[in-house]
């Protein structure tokens, strides 16, 4: 188990490194000169001054050297300074945005997992019943509706028309912080974030459980006189969860994308909102920093998924 975790951790680090190279290169390939971000457009610099600035920022060195320099600093926690907010270091800027994003994603995923798995179990156990058909239609709708549509529709109905939920941000401006207020702001974006994932998890859980219910060991459990409830919950569901855990792990990466979008629709002060504004401002250090932190988070989550999987399936532990 320890070697298993160590190996996954090593793979994760390599992936993170690869991600940083990729982001670095992509940003440098993007149109526009990174130096532009440092210059006040209304006060053009002379060619000499420009070259001096370039040299001071290290932007005249070859790309690999620039990358290594950036990496060395990054390893010490120095992700540079925001080019748009003068003198603001990137790391604290990014770190303060992690909390809200984790809250939103965790809430969204928790809703998706609980709803998806219970609906999947219900559908499989009551196969072809009205409940199964209803849930399957719902899931199909959930999978095929694009996030921008559900986000805008949700916003329109629940906050504009019905007034049940605030239309954005994390807390009521000006009010003192309170948990109910936070939850009130959290529900709508979290539910919208969860829809697609819940639908996908439900479909997987249903298919997986139906397959497991046909397995010989389920028949063995019945032959032992295990109560039907425990046949499902103890003998079938635990096996059926295996592929679903993998799915959940891999949807988390996708959920990050969804969260970025939902944050910008709901003005949720997380990494997504930061990233979107940094991209439009061409604030390269912030883009790099935010991407890396998001990437690291996804890798950690995948590691946790693998460990959960190994804990549920004894066959993984030995091999």
């Amino acid at each position: 188990m320890t070697t298993f975790i160590a190996r996954r951790l090593a793979i994760g680090l390599v992936m993170l490194l690869a991600l940083s190279v990729l982001v670095f290169v992509l940003l440098r390939l993007a149109p526009g000169d990174p130096i532009d971000a440092y210059i006040n457009p209304s006060a053009p610099l002379s060619a000499e001054a420009l070259a001096a600035l370039r040299a001071r920022l290290g932007l005249d060195a070859p790309l690999p050297v620039q990358y290594l320099g950036w990496l060395r600093a990054a390893l010490t926690g120095d992700l540079g300074f925001s080019t748009q907010r003068a003198g603001v270091p990137v790391l604290p800027l990014v770190l303060e945005r992690i909390g809200p994003t984790i809250l939103l994603m965790a809430a969204g995923l928790a809703i998706a997992i609980v709803a998806g798995i219970s609906a999947g179990i219900l559908s499989a156990v009551r196969r072809n019943s009205a409940a199964d058909v209803g849930l399957s239609v719902l899931a199909f709708t959930g999978i095929s509706s694009p996030a921008f549509l559900t986000a805008l529709l949700g916003l329109y109905f629940f906050s504009v028309r019905l007034g049940w939920a605030p239309s954005g941000s994390m807390t009521t401006p000006g009010a003192a912080f309170s948990v109910p207020d936070l939850l009130h702001h959290l529900v709508l974006p979290a539910v919208i974030l969860s829809i697609g994932h819940a639908a996908l998890i439900m479909r997987y859980m249903r298919a997986s459980l139906l397959e497991v219910l046909n397995q010989d060991y389920v028949r063995t459990a019945r032959a032992k006189g295990v109560r039907e409830f425990w046949v499902i919950v103890k003998h079938a569901v635990r096996n059926a969860l295996l592929p679903v855990i993998t799915l959940i792990g891999s949807t988390i990466g996708v959920a990050v994308g969804g969260a970025i979008f939902i944050e910008s629709v709901f003005n949720w002060p997380g990494m997504g909102l930061l990233l979107v504004s940094a991209v439009s401002d061409r604030d390269y250090p912030v883009i790099m920093g935010a991407t890396l932190v998001i990437g690291a988070a996804v890798i950690v989550v995948n590691l946790l998924t693998d460990i959960t999987y190994a804990a549920v399936d004894p066959r993984i532990r030995v091999s």
Partner: peptide, 23 residues
């Protein structure tokens, strides 16, 4: 019937590889 199964009457199946729960 459930109360009799596994208690008063029991069954052994053909496939030992798949008749036991892997987890």
């Amino acid at each position: 019937l459930r109360q009799l199964r596994g208690n008063d009457m029991a069954m052994v199946f053909q496939e030992p590889m798949t008749s036991l729960n892997p987890v």
